[in-house]
């Protein structure tokens, strides 16, 4: 029995010692925090381990290094609303200075955003917004309008402003894809009267096989078709392959919203000249920069020059949206420059 109690006492003493050291260091940190400690800027992606968010992480790290902040990138291995809430709670407990999130489900994250705000943390969204929340700012990649317009402008340039064009999208219910299509139609109708969008096809879940079938059908239905647009990123490979299979490389222009890694083989083989997206790395960079400004209490100007970003960053004080800039046009010259 004596031995047992000794073990107990040892453990208890150990715990006590630990808690004392923890408390004391904690206190000293607390007092010196404002003067010389690095600002803690956190970002919660929708999930980790995919190239897109890894690119944002890399951009965030770069900005943190440049501006002398600490960047915390914390996400779950699966896209889950519960995990986001849980991670956000942990970050609030860590007392980070600014906290950003790419929102998966606004209804479950809104109370947590309110909680972070109540705890005195600057909360903002990046990459995906919850407009109904108490977030202070939304760091947006590009406007839907700019994405739709730019795609049609680039396609029209390739086709000299005329010809039949088919669109292959993802799910018919996907809000973002439908908005882009709406702006594409608007641009084509107002600026390129000879560019005719003949048909919009949808694919289940944006699957590559389905996209290929739809593209083949469109090509046989409209033999004089000049361009194909793959709206969902996942539909890009299917559409490009369909054109390759039909030996129409150079006769039918393929364009879409595909990431550099996705479109690289097709740009190399020549079936695609360009792809439209935004720079995920720059988005991560801007997210951390914005967090530092918020944590320092600096107000955004209508046009901000962010050291390290080539384009000026616009801020709309009405909607509180900080805009990365115009969409990125990916072509054979820059396709190798991005890690996503």
């Amino acid at each position: 029995m004596r031995k047992m109690s000794k073990v107990f006492i040892l453990i208890m003493a150990l715990c006590l010692a630990l808690s004392l050291t923890a408390c004391s260091t904690g206190n000293s940190n607390g007092s010196s925090h404002s003067s010389n400690q690095k600002l803690k800027i956190a970002f919660i992606p929708q999930l980790i381990g995919i190239p897109y968010f890894t690119a944002m992480q890399n951009g965030g790290n770069e900005a943190a290094k440049k501006f002398g902040a600490q960047f915390i990138y914390s996400g779950a291995t699966q896209a889950s609303a519960q995990k986001q809430v849980q991670i956000m709670d942990s970050l609030i407990r860590q007392k980070v200075d600014a906290l950003s999130i790419s929102v998966l489900d606004s209804s479950s994250i809104n109370p947590e955003i309110a909680k972070a705000k109540a705890a005195g943390i600057k909360v903002y969204t990046a990459d995906s917004d919850s407009a109904t929340s108490e977030r202070s700012t939304y760091v947006a990649q590009a406007t839907d309008k700019a994405l739709g317009y730019t795609l049609i402008d680039r396609l029209a340039k390739q086709l000299n402003g005329k010809g039949q064009v088919g669109i292959i999208s993802g799910e018919s219910t996907a809000t973002n894809l439908n908005t882009w299509i709406k702006y594409m139609k608007e641009r084509a109708a107002s600026k390129y009267p000879n560019l005719k969008i003949v048909e919009v096809r949808y694919t289940s879940g944006g699957s590559s096989e389905d996209a290929m079938n739809q593209a083949q059908e469109l090509m046989s239905k409209y033999p004089s078709m000049k361009g194909l647009v793959a709206v969902a990123s996942s539909a890009v490979p299917g559409v490009a392959q369909a054109v390759q299979k039909a030996n129409k490389v150079g006769k039918i222009a393929v364009i879409g919203y595909g990431s550099p890694k996705t479109v690289k083989p097709f740009i190399k083989s020549g079936v695609m000249k360009e792809s439209i997206l935004w720079n995920a790395k720059d988005l991560g960079y801007l997210t951390v920069w914005a967090g530092i400004q918020l944590a320092k209490g600096n107000k955004f100007k209508a046009v901000n020059h962010v050291p390290g970003l080539s384009n000026p960053v616009k801020y709309d004080s009405k909607t509180k949206v900080l805009l990365l800039g115009p969409p990125l046009v990916i072509n054979k010259d820059n396709v190798n420059n991005y890690g996503f």
């Binding site: 453990i11 630990l18 923890a22 408390c23 709670d89 407990r93």
Partner: peptide, 27 residues
């Protein structure tokens, strides 16, 4: 449990507070 709490407190100095330990029980 004690070892886990001890290790976690080493990893993060803010971890070992009653508020924290009670707060995380919700998960």
């Amino acid at each position: 449990l004690i070892i886990t709490i001890a290790i976690m407190s080493f990893l993060n100095q803010d971890f070992l507070s009653i508020d924290n330990l009670v707060g995380i029980t919700q998960f």
